[in-house]
Design a protein around this nucleic acid. Structure first.
Length: 274
DNA sequence: TTTTTTTCCTGACAGC
DNA sequence: TGCTGTCAGGAAAAAA
């Protein structure tokens, strides 16, 4: 389940293998993946072009073509990219590009939740319905107390749910939201508005530290599918509370419950509710 | 307006 | 073995 670190790792990977290669064929066996363009138009738009720049905004991947048009991909739950030097089709490969050098980039998505949009240029992509409402990047200078605290203070949502809100700060998903609450000793159910400025600062610091460290470990891989050629990350070994039964700090059993339909972990002793 | 619930989808797994 | 039910979760849409 890709959150910001996983998407960044994918971006780094794609930049090593598919940049500046001429696309000679496009296959889309699952047309519903394409949200605002037909299969015919999509193929026509990509044929004989190449990707000149690949980067991310939040959890969205932007593939900029040499004619400035942009493909925007969101992996949602299980989407993944695999590059192969020789083509072999795996189960759930829903889209792939063949390059002039013989390489193939495949998009694989067992749950079919991922989306692909297509825009005339970067400005149009960034102004689109999906990207336009995104909040600040967690590694940017804009992600600071002056920006975040007033919004946290104005919300009655549980803090963990608030952290997942991509219109405030992008990139945090369920796993890292759990980790951030644990590291900052805050019960995930605490209403956001109850938190002090110093705690919001601690959340900002923890968010940046955790996401950064996870990228260094190639992200978190919770579900590994045998058909995937994608090299899994190893940050799951560093997770302090997600998927654990006993607290690393105090060895008490960790409480597990659903908070707004999301699996939530909390150590009653180490995390305080306000 | 803000927050919560439902929906999308398939594979893994538990229980019978 | 094989069926049924439940769960996982990002984000849009619908409901409260």
């Amino acid at each position: 389940m890709p959150e910001l670190p996983e998407v960044q790792v994918v971006i780094n990977y794609l930049n090593t293998c598919v940049l500046n290669q001429e696309i000679v064929a496009v296959h889309v066996p699952l047309p519903k993946l394409l949200k605002n363009i037909s299969v015919v138009q999509f193929k026509k738009a990509l044929l004989h072009r190449h990707f000149k720049k690949i980067y991310r905004r939040g959890k969205f991947l932007l593939f900029v073509l040499d004619n400035d048009k942009v493909m925007v991909s969101h992996l949602r739950m299980e989407g993944k990219y695999n590059y192969q030097t020789e083509f072999s089709q795996d189960k759930h490969d829903h889209l792939w590009w063949e390059f002039a050098n013989g390489g193939v980039l495949k998009y694989n998505d067992s749950r079919q939740f991922g989306t692909i949009h297509f825009y005339d240029n970067e400005a149009a992509a960034l102004a689109s319905k999906e990207l336009q409402k995104l909040g600040v990047e967690p590694f940017s200078e804009e992600f600071n107390v002056a920006y975040y605290y007033p919004q946290v203070h104005a919300s009655k949502k549980p803090i963990k749910t608030f952290l997942l809100d991509q219109s405030k700060v992008v990139g945090i998903g369920n796993i890292y939201a759990n980790e951030i609450c644990f590291v900052t000793h805050i019960d995930p159910r605490t209403p956001a508005c109850k938190l002090k400025k110093s705690q919001v600062q601690a959340i900002i610091d923890a968010t940046q530290a955790i996401l950064k460290e996870s990228i260094a470990f190639n992200g978190t891989t919770i579900h590994t599918f045998t058909f995937s050629k994608w090299k899994p990350g190893s940050y799951q070994e560093k997770l302090q509370i997600y998927d654990r039964e006993e607290c690393l700090r105090c060895h008490q059993p960790i409480e597990f419950f659903k908070l707004n339909q999301r699996g939530t972990y909390c150590c009653k002793k180490c995390q305080k509710k306000y």
